[in-house]
Design a protein around this nucleic acid. Structure first.
Length: 537
DNA sequence: AATTAGTTGTCTGG
DNA sequence: CCAGACAACTAATT
């Protein structure tokens, strides 16, 4: 290219044409455009040792969702006279090779606050700048730029939703139109010696062909996202009256929420466009719900967690995380495995975990139930262990939101009322007394009468025989008794909170271990004393 | 230093 | 359907 006006559009998330400022800028004044996606082995290479089919980082459902999103992006680019160029390898190295081979004057990509991209992007930016390439990296994944909010708050992120709202105010772009469509794109430039691939199939990436019944019903891609958006918005009353806590977590034929989260995760849908569409609906109705419970409120929750995550070092761990309570979680791999593999013996919990494996998506409140059960509610297993399972299996798993919610549910940060524990029996029952959700995801319990389906171990043997489901043989007995386990969890949480308070949050590993030994010792001796105050000395 | 408010708990009793 | 007990947390605000 003698004219020297080539642009490279690097897609990572933001897999869309609409409201994509990086792509828009890349096209401006460019003779040629290289729309690139890099297949990163770190994320995509099969890992047979993982606990579920997939790579070391992601279950198969999310990998497939990503591939579908890429196919759709390629097809949408082709409609505009371009195409998606697939390259393979470590993204930093691959891009450097591209810069050497191609005449690139501009590098454009969506800004990303995740630690993985923060580290990668510094390298890429440095190389590009040193080579005289202009870098354009706009924050278009969220409504606000997390860095701006943190700056407004004096360098620290707000730790409550309300204070976040106050700082954030109205988004700057809220009342000006976003770019939703692009006209013809510049032609794709000469590849040189770079090897370019089509979007691979799962098989080409080295995965076994999975059975259809074990795969998520949700298809990836911008086209699917916009279709889903239109479907959700078409019911104005539903949009206007949406209140998150009132949704039914057991609804699965028609989920109680929009299920747009996986599309927001990969950027198949722009959160800013979604926001504007919701405002348009609100203008057309008499009254509507508000944050935190409204649909706009959900988008703001997303921004809230992005902001806290970006401004908190070690946000994805308990240690050295200044907003995270230090709690002596136990290290019980058997309990963790039972939870992960949907064999806790509590049908409501196990059915949710089956839905996670099969669909990669569950209702928000269903996530609450299993997260509470694993951590502060029943099993007292470390939230990081549960976080890992969600991170792998959810098709919408998002670093900031997932880590934030696990801290929330485990009462490690954001939320502290550890007395409030979801009952693995009564919570689901109040939405779905017949147990249809359980019957669907745990067919072994299909014929269990509704009187026993949430507590099948209480069914007389004659009933179990008739239902063709013997507890302890066909379906497991409960791994813990909820009544005593939750009581013990509350006691431990109380002790841990007292320790954190006494030490002003600066709990050393030795102090945490000492508390752990004492708590476990107490439990073994079945000490009757209700609650011991820690006496600071 | 004191007060207020916080997306979504359970169980009992009216 | 709703209120209150349970037992009492924190960050932000005043």
């Amino acid at each position: 290219m003698a004219f020297g006006s080539g642009s490279l559009m690097w897609f990572r998330k933001g897999l869309r044409i609409h409201d994509n400022p990086a792509l828009e800028y890349a096209t401006k004044g460019s003779a040629v455009l290289y729309p690139v996606f890099v297949i990163d082995p770190h994320y995509m290479k099969p890992d047979p040792s993982a606990f579920s089919p997939g790579s070391s980082r992601s279950g198969l459902n999310r990998i497939r969702f990503l591939l579908e999103s890429l196919v759709d992006l390629d097809s949408n680019l082709k409609k505009l006279g371009s195409r998606l160029l697939i390259l393979k390898g470590e993204p930093g190295e691959v891009l450097v090779r591209c810069f050497k081979q191609w005449d690139v004057k501009k590098l454009c990509f969506e800004y990303d606050t995740e630690p993985y991209y923060q580290a990668l992007d510094v390298r890429v930016k440095e190389y590009a700048s040193a080579s005289g390439i202009e870098v354009f990296s706009p924050a278009s994944n969220t409504l606000f730029n997390p860095g701006d909010i943190i700056h407004k708050n004096g360098g620290k992120p707000p730790l409550t939703y309300q204070s976040f709202l106050k700082l954030a105010g109205q988004p700057s772009w809220a009342s000006s139109p976003l770019t939703i469509t692009l006209s013809l794109l510049p032609p794709v430039g000469d590849f040189g010696n770079c090897e370019i691939f089509e979007v691979p199939t799962l098989k080409e990436l080295g995965y076994e062909d999975p059975g259809q019944e074990d795969l998520t019903p949700f298809r990836g891609g911008e086209s699917e996202a916009l279709k889903r958006l239109r479907d959700s918005l078409s019911d104005r009353d539903w949009v206007a009256n949406f209140e998150k806590p009132k949704g039914d977590p057991s609804a699965f034929v028609k989920p109680a929420t929009t299920v747009l989260s996986p599309y927001l995760k990969f950027g198949c849908l722009s959160s800013r466009y979604f926001y504007q569409c919701l405002q348009d609906v609100y203008k057309k109705v008499k009254k509507h719900t508000s944050p935190p419970v409204s649909l706009v409120g959900q988008l703001l929750w997303r921004d809230f967690f992005y902001t806290v995550a970006y401004g908190t070092p070690n946000f994805d761990q308990m240690k050295n995380n200044r907003i995270c309570k230090q709690i002596p979680w136990n290290d019980n791999d058997e309990l963790l495995a039972a939870w992960r593999e949907a064999r806790t013996g509590y049908p409501w919990i196990d059915a949710i975990m089956v839905q996670l494996h099969k669909w990669g998506w569950m209702h928000h409140l269903a996530r609450h139930c299993v997260a509470c059960f694993l951590t502060r509610g029943d099993l007292f297993v470390h939230w990081e262990k549960g976080r890992d399972v969600f991170e792998r299996l959810l098709i919408d798993s998002d670093w900031a939101i997932n880590n934030g919610n696990w801290q929330w549910l485990s009462c490690s940060s954001f939320f502290y009322q550890y007395n409030r524990i979801y009952s693995p029996i009564s919570f689901g029952k109040k939405y779905d007394p017949n147990g249809n959700y359980i019957r669907h995801f745990l067919p072994i319990l299909e014929d269990m009468p509704k009187e026993y389906i949430y507590e099948p171990w209480t069914a007389p043997l004659s009933i179990q025989t008739k239902a063709k489901c013997i507890i302890g043989k066909d379906y497991p007995r409960p791994v813990v008794f909820h009544d005593s386990a939750s009581k013990e969890c509350k006691r431990r949480m109380g002790e841990a909170y007292a320790l954190n308070k006494n030490l002003n949050g600066l709990v050393s590993e030795e102090e945490l271990n000492s508390l752990r030994r004492r708590l476990e010792g107490n439990q073994k001796q079945e000490v009757k004393s209700k609650r011991r105050k820690i006496i600071a000395d």
